[in-house]
Amino acid sequence: MTAVLFSLTFLLAAPFWALMIFVPRWSWTKRIVESYLIILPVVAIYVVLMIPVLPELLPLVTRPELPALAEFMSTDTGAALVWAHMIAWDLFVGRWMYLEGRRLNVHPLVMAPVLVITILLAPVGLPLFLIVRKVCDTENRGATVVTRQ
């Protein structure tokens, strides 16, 4: 079952990435991606994988030690759990980036590569998008979103 859930994890997220990358200006894309619910299928997989190993997982996240964490992640369940965590978080961040890009009217040919990099290497994609956002936010509208001023 773990292998099936592992395989299913990205398949559940991929349609949303496809919408944001390939048809970003389609009216339904924005409607769909605006919903936080797009992340729930992957989160559900995470929860299903997590519950049986919760007693083992809690000490690893509350008092992390590299050898114990490496040992846990070397198991099928540990790897699938980390994968689901990564996919859920990447989709959440990608969703925010897409919506910010739309709000700032960033061209889809700029956003698409940034989103692809985020799928593959989110810790690189996020700062790359923050640079794009800074360049495109000429009126400092990002601060307005946060402060409402």
Rank of each mutant, 00 (worst) to 15 (best):
R63N: 11
R63V: 04
R63I: 03
R63D: 10
P64Y: 08
P64D: 02
P64G: 06
E65I: 13
E65T: 15
E65P: 05
L66P: 08
L66C: 06
L66F: 12
L66W: 13
L66H: 09
L66T: 15
L66I: 15
P67C: 07
A68T: 12
A68E: 11
L69M: 12
L69C: 11
L69V: 15
A70M: 12
A70V: 15
E71Y: 14
E71L: 14
F72E: 02
F72T: 13
F72I: 12
F72R: 15
M73I: 14
S74F: 12
S74M: 14
S74V: 10
T75N: 03
T75H: 03
D76E: 09
T77L: 02
T77F: 00
T77E: 05
T77K: 11
G78A: 09
A79F: 14
A79D: 08
A80H: 07
A80M: 05
A80C: 06
L81H: 13
L81V: 10
L81P: 12
L81D: 07
L81T: 13
L81Y: 12
V82W: 12
V82D: 10
V82E: 13
W83Y: 15
W83S: 09
W83I: 10
W83T: 13
W83C: 09
A84D: 00
A84L: 08
A84I: 09
H85C: 06
H85Q: 10
H85D: 02
H85P: 03
I87K: 04
I87Y: 05
I87D: 01
I87Q: 04
I87S: 03
A88I: 09
W89P: 08
W89Q: 12
W89E: 03
D90G: 05
D90H: 05
D90R: 03
L91T: 13
L91E: 03
L91H: 09
L91R: 13
L91Q: 08
L91P: 09
F92K: 07
F92P: 03
F92L: 11
F92G: 06
F92E: 01
F92Q: 03
F92S: 07
V93N: 01
G94D: 01
G94L: 00
G94S: 03
G94R: 04
R95A: 04
R95V: 11
R95M: 07
W96F: 07
W96N: 07
W96K: 11
W96Y: 07
W96L: 10
M97A: 01
M97T: 02
Y98A: 02
Y98Q: 07
Y98V: 03
Y98N: 05
L99H: 07
L99N: 04
L99V: 08
L99A: 05
L99M: 08
L99Y: 05
E100N: 03
E100F: 01
E100K: 05
E100Q: 06
G101R: 01
R102C: 04
R102V: 06
R102E: 02
R103K: 14
R103E: 11
L104F: 05
L104G: 04
L104C: 04
N105E: 09
V106H: 00
V106W: 00
H107I: 08
H107K: 10
H107G: 05
H107V: 09
H107N: 11
P108R: 01
P108A: 04
P108C: 06
P108N: 06
L109Q: 07
L109E: 08
L109S: 11
L109P: 10
V110E: 01
V110S: 01
V110R: 00
M111W: 00
M111E: 00
M111G: 00
A112I: 02
A112V: 02
